[in-house]
């Protein structure tokens, strides 16, 4: 086969992506630097000076950081447990973890509306038990978003971790124990460091996912905005496309920075090189 023929195979897909994805995105980002035919940073200066915008950004970051941490704390032990099971049972547990991942995010967020609402499962139970008089406001708060996002992304964390944990040779644990390490020390000194790459990948997926999620904050956040819902509001409700473009550019920048930094981290934390 001629060398150039390879490029013919890639050409249709490339043209498609270039025309419908790359060019629109590049133009969108480019447009944020131009106002009245002149180069400007006003859009960004305005954004980062406005306390309302900054609060949205801060809320988004807070929600994403908490969600990521909770996913690590809940995901690691669970993934470790799954990875140590015999193949059959491991397959079943993995399937149970993957099922919610493939289920519509609308369905999953909606289920939390039933649980967290003022007349929801939790409030009914607490009032019924006489623990509280008035129903708690959980739905439409950042906490509700964190719960919903954790539910949304925990499976991603679990399967990324199972991927690395199941490849850790069981003999390494035994070797550590035969050298005098207790089971806990063996875990801390051997298993955990070897799982760090999977942990970093999982954390990136969860963090970036939470940062850019739309459906869950839209359903569980109420009036509480995050950048994704704020972008939508500006684009579709307020028709402020310039501001929407600025938000889009900021979201892309944050995503790329986070992915880049975590990639670097994964490399330096992984001494194998």
């Amino acid at each position: 086969m001629k060398k150039s023929a390879v490029y013919w195979l890639l050409l249709p897909g490339f043209v498609f992506l270039a025309a419908f994805m790359v060019i629109p995105i590049v133009l969108t980002i480019g447009s944020t630097f131009v106002q009245e035919n002149a180069f400007t940073l006003d859009g960004y200066l305005h954004f980062f000076k406005d306390p309302y915008f900054l609060k949205i950004l801060l809320t988004t970051l807070q929600v994403s950081v908490v969600t990521t941490l909770v996913c690590v704390v809940l995901g690691f032990p669970t993934a470790y447990y799954i990875s140590r099971k015999a193949p059959r049972r491991k397959g079943i547990l993995l399937a149970l973890a993957i099922f919610p991942l493939l289920t519509s995010p609308v369905v999953r967020s909606f289920s939390w509306m039933i649980i967290l609402g003022r007349k929801g499962l939790i409030n009914n139970a607490l009032v019924g038990l006489g623990l509280i008089d008035q129903p708690l406001d959980i739905l439409y708060t950042p906490a509700a978003m964190m719960i919903g996002l954790t539910h949304l992304f925990l499976p991603l964390m679990i399967i990324s971790l199972v991927g690395v944990l199941e490849n850790i040779d069981q003999d390494l644990l035994k070797a550590a124990q035969s050298l005098g390490a207790s089971r806990f020390t063996a875990f801390r000194r051997v298993v955990f460091p070897l799982a760090v790459p999977g942990l970093v990948i999982g954390a990136v997926l969860v963090f970036v996912g939470s940062l850019t999620a739309y459906t869950t904050p839209a359903l569980l956040g109420g009036k509480q905005r995050v950048i994704a819902t704020f972008l939508y509001q500006n684009a579709m409700t307020l028709n402020d496309w310039y501001l929407a473009s600025v938000i889009a550019a900021i979201m892309i920048a944050i995503t790329f920075i986070v992915v880049g930094v975590m990639n670097r981290m994964a490399k330096t934390l992984n001494p194998k090189g």
């Binding site: 994805m21 629109p24 995105i25 969108t28 850019t212 979201m251 995503t255 790329f256």
Partner: peptide, 14 residues
């Protein structure tokens, strides 16, 4: 890698 909401917005726009 591109945030879905960003992709949706640019697709709509262009």
């Amino acid at each position: 890698l591109i945030p879905g909401i960003v992709l949706g917005f640019t697709l709509m726009k262009y």
